[in-house]
Design a protein around this nucleic acid. Sequence first.
DNA 1: GCAAAGATTTGCT
DNA 2: GCAAATCTTTGCC
Length: 223
Amino acid sequence: MTTAFPREALRTDTLAAARALIGARIVRGSGPNARIGRIVEVEAYVGVEDRASHARFGPTRRNAAMFGPPGHAYVYFVYGMYYCLNVVTEPEGRPCAVLIRAVEPIAGLEAMRAARHAVRAERAISGAGRGAAIPDDRLAAGPGLVCAALSITRADDGADLCGPDSDLRLDARPVDEPAPSVVTGPRIGIGYAPEPWRSEPWRFWETGNPSLSKRPSPLELGR
DNA sequence: GCAAAGATTTGCT
DNA sequence: GCAAATCTTTGCC
């Protein structure tokens, strides 16, 4: 028995929503074939005033979902190769979202692995011919990899993640699972943004989780 | 209308 | 550690 992630927890402050999403589940499909990932790393993008956000130039064809109601998906295509998944936050009209940077595979690992390899073959990345095995921990350890493992594309842009019947949806952390230990730091890949946004500690992650986008140090893994 | 850079990942120098 | 792969969007001509 699982519970849909409450939309009201996304309608309010984006930084609080980002922290609350650590430990929640992203679910693709239903039944025994469902792929489930536990969110372990996210980043918050807050309004048009955030000079690191895609919303900084106002609404465009690409970022329209950011201006929509909370609890829906904003999926964008970047570098001509990868998709990235965001959860839209705050009331409709305020362009805020939380980027899902990494998830820990919980179920459907073989389907995730197959999806990763399918994307690789599709993109025809040079040198990928040998197709080295992907460790379980690394199946969705990065924003582009989350979408590859869960088969997320622009077709999912605008989908309602809080709808219990959606093919792509959010589930709350199980009540019997302890609250994760969350730490913060600067966001990644936004060197183009001026201060103070470049240095705002709006990246949230679970301490020492092996599925983080940047592999944690042995010290962190050991504690 | 065209040049340039991007909320990334991978493999090779 | 660096550059390539590749397409959408921005910014200037």
